[in-house]
């Protein structure tokens, strides 16, 4: 994203469109529902801002499309071209399949690793193993945090995390300014 302001603008427009369309469909909602809708629409807007260049956005779209109640929002937001969602879910499926292969590879590796680790521990090289374990644990956590991170390898995971953080920042900025504006209006009214 070369120009953060441009990104913000695009995101804002998409988000507004989503909110508007959704609000026009059913007007009466509880606060929790509203929260959910706002969050989902902003997520989708964020994901669609990034096109299909990144994996996390596709995973986000695919995850959103899995919930039936969100399908209407998706259709509204992404308009007629629901191909994007299809493509995203297809990519997710592909990645899942890939990860299965990887997992089976990993099992083999693990069984080899266990022996090695045992040997290392036997020889008392504990700190290396401990450090590795720490990194592994944290990588696992990060994989859970980044959408679609489960299917990613280490290097691509970090790249996706970079991108995701970037977009999250934009999202937070926009939402904050909007929240501030509405809050200010509220104060003025009171």
């Amino acid at each position: 994203m070369q120009n953060p302001n441009l990104g913000k603008k695009i995101f804002m427009e998409k988000w507004m469109k989503g909110l508007q369309r959704y609000n026009s469909s059913n007007k009466e909602m509880s606060i929790l529902e509203r929260t959910k809708v706002i969050k989902i629409t902003s997520d989708i807007a964020m994901a669609s801002t990034r096109k299909s260049s990144t994996f996390w956005s596709q995973a986000l779209l695919a995850n959103a499309s899995q919930d039936d109640s969100n399908k209407t929002i998706l259709e509204h937001m992404l308009g007629s071209n629901s191909k994007i969602v299809e493509k995203a879910s297809r990519t997710l499926l592909r990645m899942a399949n890939n990860s299965k292969k990887i997992r089976s590879k990993k099992i083999v590796k693990k069984s080899c690793m266990a022996k090695r680790v045992n040997r290392i521990e036997y020889h008392g090289l504990a700190s290396c193993v401990v450090a590795k374990r720490l990194v592994k644990k944290r990588t696992q956590v990060l994989k859970n945090l980044v959408p679609g991170g489960k299917y990613l390898q280490n290097e691509s995971l970090i790249r996706e995390a970079l991108d995701y953080i970037d977009s999250l920042r934009v999202q937070v900025d926009v939402m904050r300014s909007l929240a501030y504006a509405s809050n200010h209006f509220h104060c003025q009214q009171v």
Binding site: I31, T35, K39, S42, R138, A161, I165, V172, A179, F185
Partner: peptide, 22 residues
Amino acid sequence: INYVQSLQRQVEFLSMKLATVN
């Protein structure tokens, strides 16, 4: 991880705020 988590929480909080405030 902390940063991503905080950002995600912020998003959630802000959406809640937007839903409730006005």
